[in-house]
């Protein structure tokens, strides 16, 4: 693996996506401020806004760094550089995940900190929040993998829709798992084995997705 070239390509995507990254930080900060303001309505509005910001940046990154690169014919420029398609795949996976994880980590850590806020604690929501935040990460990985493997705008948009729908169904299902739902209203953290199993399952699925993406990409014969 040509690590230097992978690094250069990741840096390129960071530079070209800098306004999107900035916009998502601004959006995230506004949502967190609304949540911090307190009240049930504020909490819900802020939460929905925060989820929207995270889902949007994941989708936007996949579309603009992978699908648009092919559509706007900048891919031949990239592939004329001393890089193999395997390294291109690595740069896109790592680049997208790195950008997303920076935003995601800041937002998730801030959200968890707000839930643990000592004057108005909602620690019971921490397991549910962690599971759903990881679900957004998983969804982003799925969208990036779909964009890379299919190289198609249609399939990528389809994956974004599936991820959004799945998020709602998954959230509903998790909120009704007995030993997770029981602790959600509590001011104290109640971590259960169900939460652990779900989180481990999500991270395993992410690892599987990344592995499958490299597997399918390595079988491709033609890159343009």
């Amino acid at each position: 693996m040509n690590r230097r070239m992978i690094g250069r390509l990741i840096w390129k995507d960071w530079y070209l996506q800098r306004w999107i990254i900035l916009a998502s930080f601004v959006g995230g900060a506004i949502s967190l401020a609304i949540i911090a303001k307190g009240g049930k309505a504020g909490f819900l509005v802020g939460l929905i806004l925060l989820i929207t910001v995270l889902v949007s940046i994941g989708a936007q990154l996949a579309v603009s760094t992978i699908v648009q690169e092919r559509k706007e014919q900048t891919l031949p420029f990239v592939m004329s550089l001393p890089i193999s398609y395997r390294e291109y795949t690595a740069s896109k996976m790592l680049g997208n995940l790195a950008i997303f994880l920076v935003v995601w980590l800041v937002m998730v850590v801030s959200s968890l900190a707000l839930l643990a806020y000592p004057w108005d604690p909602h620690m019971g929501l921490i397991p549910f929040t962690a599971i759903m935040a990881t679900e957004i990460l998983l969804g982003t990985c799925l969208v990036v993998a779909t964009a890379l493997i299919t190289e198609s705008q249609g399939w990528t948009i389809g994956a974004i829709m599936v991820v959004n729908l799945a998020f709602n169904f998954f959230g509903y299902w998790v909120a009704h798992i007995h030993n997770i739902a029981n602790g959600m209203e509590s001011t104290k953290l109640m971590w259960t084995s169900s939460a652990s199993v779900l989180l481990i399952g999500e991270f395993c699925t992410i690892a599987l997705l990344l592995g499958l993406t490299f597997f399918f990409q390595s079988r491709k014969q033609d890159f343009l």
Partner: peptide, 29 residues
């Protein structure tokens, strides 16, 4: 190809540069 392309300059009809970036940025890249 990685080694070969270190010494190849390639320009094709269907190749585009990044519209939002300057030529100077491309040169630096």
């Amino acid at each position: 190809q990685t080694s070969a392309k270190m010494d190849i300059g390639f320009v094709s009809e269907d190749m585009r540069l990044y519209g939002a970036a300057t030529l100077g940025w491309h040169m630096e890249f």
